[in-house]
């Protein structure tokens, strides 16, 4: 008998996205540009994070018409975002057949205590994390893919670097700890002890881990790959730049050839202006999207 929505199948799609770039798009035309540039998936949105940040107010799941038109326009997987904790938005996205759901801090959370029970769904979920405890809590809730949070919509990769280094350092530390210390460590990081033990043994997260939040250049993408990420999300970085097609192609190539500075140099030329950047210290702490999530 065929079994749908199993853990292998949910985690499996994330494995297939590895080494690839997932691009934020707001129209079918942008989705086509992303697909032709070599995106391995697109994130269908009403507004990119930079515009959500500028608009303020409550950011919700995108208009379903936009998502469906994007699904019709491309053959690659289509992801869409729901607000943290909004399990009904997730039910709706599953019903229209979205391929992956991002329970995302870019939108305004609806539950200040609990995330979605992602085990209840056939569609897989990706969630953001700033540290190992947060990543393992999301995996315990059923996330089949993790990404750094970074600071979305800033074109500033510093926070994604911080989050990736943090997760990697914590994983490395776990691998050298004696087993009797793992229970206390699990308590301190607020993560299930079984998952902590598993990470300590294998030296890696049990799911794919992508970089997200602030990636704006091919060099940013390659750096996140060299830091150990499995792939790249680019939000505002492509369609807020001067030449989206050229930049999209370059970031795709940089994600594949991340360890080849000669190729990185070739593809980094003639890209036009990157998106305007934001210094993190100029964003009030209560307006930082990465602080959302529990």
């Amino acid at each position: 008998m065929a079994e749908k929505g199993t853990w292998t199948v949910k985690k499996g799609l994330a494995e297939m996205l590895k080494g690839g770039v997932i691009m934020d798009v707001t129209t079918p035309e942008q989705a086509k540009i992303a697909e032709e540039a070599g995106a391995c998936a697109v994130m269908a949105l009403e507004r990119v994070p930079a515009d959500i940040r500028a608009a303020g107010g409550v950011a919700r799941m995108a208009n379903l018409k936009i998502i469906k038109r994007i699904m019709d326009a491309v053959t690659i997987p289509v992801m869409a975002k729901v607000r943290i904790g909004h399990f009904v938005e997730a039910q709706i996205l599953e019903a229209i057949g979205v391929d992956y759901i991002d329970e995302s801090e870019v939108l305004t959370p609806v539950d200040e205590q609990f995330h979605i029970n992602k085990h209840n769904f056939k569609v897989p979920f990706v969630c953001g994390a700033r540290n190992l405890g947060e990543a393992l809590r999301r995996i315990a809730e059923g996330a089949a893919m993790i990404r750094t949070k970074g600071e979305p919509g800033t074109g500033n990769v510093v926070e994604a670097v911080r989050h990736m280094r943090m997760v990697s350092d914590e994983i490395r530390r776990l691998t050298v700890l004696p087993e009797e210390e793992l229970v206390t460590v699990a308590k301190e990081m607020g993560a299930p002890v079984e998952l902590v033990k598993q990470v300590a043994k294998k030296g890696k997260l049990p799911v794919v881990n992508f970089a997200a939040g602030g990636i704006a250049t091919p060099a940013d993408a390659a750096m996140m790959m060299q830091l150990g990420c499995d792939g790249i999300f680019v939000g505002s970085g492509i369609f807020k730049s001067q030449d989206p097609k050229a930049r999209a192609e370059a970031i795709v190539a940089a994600t594949t050839h991340y360890n080849d500075p000669k190729i990185l140099a070739e593809i980094s030329e003639d890209l036009g202006e990157a998106m305007p950047g934001l210094e993190i210290s100029t964003i009030a702490p209560n307006e930082r999207m990465q602080e959302r999530g529990w």
């Binding site: 494995e15 996205l17 590895k18 080494g19 697909e35 070599g38 053959t75 690659i76 192609e249 190539a253």
Partner: peptide, 15 residues
């Protein structure tokens, strides 16, 4: 391997 054939096709052409 598995992945996205459009992505692979583009990179196979480019490289």
């Amino acid at each position: 391997p598995g992945g996205e054939s459009t992505t692979m096709g583009r990179l196979m052409t480019a490289y």
